[in-house]
């Protein structure tokens, strides 16, 4: 045992007591917040097993005798599998495109200094603010001219545009802190910027990309308005649009709505769990060292 690790040991003993107290407080707070979030999902799933007539009067009790009617209606009336595939095609492609373009742009925005940089940043921030309702008509006209109405690309391209600024801004936040030394060293060894981007920046930024991918997937997946306006044929409907058919946004069949929400939420949670594995502690440090 060397000197530093003895000091290390002492330090740990000294703080052990306060650590226990603070741990208790931390877990208490976390559990309270977790209760509110878990309860909500439970509430939705629980109500999806109830008859529509009791939900408004009795939504907070446990569905003791769960019924599957709502799911049967959904699965019998609609081609859920096909809709899942459509959603996957649209949102998956949007994620890939957004990752590629936003990764390149965010990298350049954090590394280069150039004259229009601040203007560009404000332009990106500004486009976060465009309400979808005020840009939909020109977008639809263009999609129409490109002959992409009722085609996945007709949704993928506009959605890529509307998620791009968000992705660029978030990625910039993550990338601006990355150490420059590695890049300088690689440059000395003869790498060009593209090598550096693909060999160094991408691997270190994996957690950042995973986070941005999750939200891009989510926004695109839940973007009912754009999907409704552009996709007209039932066989091209993604899952949200299809389920909106049976539980219209302002409709009254809350049992169906609860089951629809459950059907919609499931794959997103799976994608989240899947991508979240990349946002694990220590990965970044390992990547830098390695």
């Amino acid at each position: 045992m060397n000197k530093s690790s003895i000091a290390f040991e002492k330090q740990i003993r000294k703080t052990r007591f306060t650590t226990v107290i603070s741990k208790i407080i931390i877990y208490f707070v976390l559990c309270i917040w977790a209760f509110t979030t878990v309860y909500t999902l439970f509430w939705v799933v629980n109500n999806s097993f109830k008859d529509k007539t009791v939900i408004l009067t009795d939504s907070f009790s446990l569905a003791v005798k769960p019924i599957l009617d709502n799911y049967e209606t959904a699965f019998n009336k609609l081609n859920i599998g096909r809709a899942y595939l459509n959603s996957f095609i649209i949102s998956g492609s949007t994620v890939v495109l957004v990752m590629v373009f936003s990764g390149l742009t965010a990298y350049a925005m954090t590394r280069y200094t150039f004259r229009l940089k601040n203007t560009l940043y404000l332009m990106f921030a500004g486009s976060l603010l465009f309400p979808a309702f005020s840009t939909i008509v020109p977008i639809f006209r263009m999609v129409l001219q490109l002959n992409l109405v009722s085609h996945p690309l007709g949704v993928i391209i506009p959605q890529t545009a509307s998620n791009l600024s968000f992705a660029i801004i978030v990625l910039m936040g993550f990338m601006s802190n990355l150490p420059l030394e590695l890049e300088e060293a690689a440059f000395m060894e003869g790498c060009n910027v593209f090598d550096i981007f693909f060999r160094i920046i991408l691997p270190i930024s994996k957690p950042a990309f995973a986070t941005v991918a999750i939200f891009t997937f989510l926004w695109s997946y839940n973007d009912l308005f754009m999907q409704m306006v552009i996709l007209r044929k039932r066989e091209t409907y993604p899952i949200c649009t299809l389920l909106n058919e049976i539980s219209s946004q302002f409709g009254t069949d809350f049992g169906l709505m609860a089951s629809a929400v459950t059907i919609v939420v499931l794959p997103v949670l799976i994608v989240y769990l899947f991508l979240q594995k990349n946002i694990v502690k220590g990965l970044t440090a390992g990547a830098i060292k390695g």
Partner: peptide
């Protein structure tokens, strides 16, 4: 007949009017 029926709500109305204003 290619039919595009959907539940009538504000989004549906927006879709119909967008069609008319876009030449579709």
């Amino acid at each position: 007949i290619t039919d595009e029926s959907a539940t009538a709500d504000e989004t549906w109305k927006a879709r119909v009017t967008t069609d008319f204003s876009s030449g579709n």
